[in-house]
């Protein structure tokens, strides 16, 4: 199987769907002539032309709202946000309009839109550019949100998102764009709402999404080699819909859970996961569920401190040792 980057996997998904469905159109800032701020859409303008690959002015509320309006007529826009942090100037469109139109019309109108872009910290861009709003999105009925952590999932989830008739928001990561992994050339999808046990283990469950999955895999390796603790790693992949079964089954097997995410702690995604575990696996638990989130302050700029603010493998290991 060929090895390609997370970035290339996303692009391949878009190329395949652009070829598959003439209603798919890519719109965003710098996606066409500039070839993408993070080169995810590199070469697409040349391949598909300016009707399908469209440079938008810096007007997130305007162009994302425009995409929502076009999707009501059956267009399938894939909108790039240069950063998910920029979503907040378009919040009324992203939250109010995209999520509510179907409901408020009594099911008469669909909004088959994809909004994608990076949502991560750790790149020295400070508080305004480091947001991870998957918890806000997941808090909004009518929306779906996924956070691929590797190239295979990036392609498979992106294709599912584009084919979905509901709004699907894809949270990527600038840190993972160069990560390489095995990705089939052929057409495949990863269904929304299907988690993956990335590493089998018996002593505890590390549950994470997005870049935090990589942190957990690193921690699991340290736990095995240095402490003889066999950690299972569960990659949520999709936040809403959520694969509760895989989470609960893992915890029932291991009886311990540490939840790791880049979100801030209050009302983060893992608050919901922690509730789920106590609700459905209470009798199986041998220790309280633990959480590691970003340290609860705006994203700090100073590079060494930013590293400390975000979840790290050594912190996960320390937390695990408290309950194992």
């Amino acid at each position: 199987m060929p090895e390609i980057s997370y970035r290339q996997a996303l692009k391949n998904a878009m190329i395949e769907e652009l070829n598959r469905d003439e209603n798919v159109v890519i719109i965003g800032e710098e996606v066409a002539e500039y070839n993408g701020a993070y080169k995810v859409t590199e070469g697409l303008l040349k391949q598909f032309g300016p009707k399908r690959i469209v440079d938008a002015p810096i007007s997130e509320a305007g162009f994302i709202g425009m995409g929502i309006g076009a999707s009501m007529l059956g267009i399938r826009p894939v909108m790039e946000l240069m950063f998910w942090s920029f979503a907040y100037v378009a919040w009324d469109q992203i939250i109010n309009n995209a999520a509510s139109v179907r409901y408020m019309s009594g099911g008469k109108i669909n909004v088959p839109i994809v909004i994608r872009g990076p949502a991560n910290g750790g790149t020295g861009v400070g508080a305004t550019h480091s947001h991870t709003p998957e918890n806000f999105i997941a808090n909004t009925p009518g929306l779906k949100v996924v956070c691929p952590s590797n190239p295979y999932d990036a392609k498979g989830l992106m294709k599912s998102a584009i084919r979905d008739n509901d709004p699907v928001y894809v949270m990527e990561s600038t840190i993972m764009y160069n990560d390489v992994g095995e990705v089939p050339d052929e057409d495949y999808t990863v269904p929304l709402g299907k988690a993956k046990v990335t590493r089998e283990g018996t002593d505890l469950s590390l549950i994470a999404h997005g870049p935090s999955v990589l942190v957990c895999l690193e921690a699991a390796e340290i736990l095995k080699t240095e402490h003889d603790i066999d950690a299972e790693v569960v990659d949520l992949r999709s936040i809403r819909p959520l694969d509760e079964e895989t989470i609960v089954n893992s915890v029932k097997k291991t009886s311990r859970a540490v939840l790791v995410e880049e979100n801030k702690p209050f009302c983060g995604v893992d608050a919901q996961i922690a509730y789920l575990i106590q609700n459905q696996a209470f009798d199986y638990l041998d220790a309280p569920v633990q959480r590691i989130s970003a340290i609860d302050a705006p994203a700090i700029y100073s590079p060494p401190l930013e590293k400390i603010q975000l979840p790290k493998a050594n912190v996960v290991v320390k937390k695990v040792l408290e309950i194992c």
């Binding site: 309006g69 999707s71 009501m72 267009i75 019309s105």
Partner: peptide
């Protein structure tokens, strides 16, 4: 929030000016 897409009527929107990008989107479509 009235809607009837079968009559080309797309709402009915509650937030002041929130429908103006959607109108551009209908035209774009």
């Amino acid at each position: 929030h009235y809607f009837d897409p079968s009559k080309n009527y797309w709402g009915g929107h509650g937030i002041v000016a929130g429908q103006t990008p959607l109108g551009a989107g209908l035209a774009y479509g």
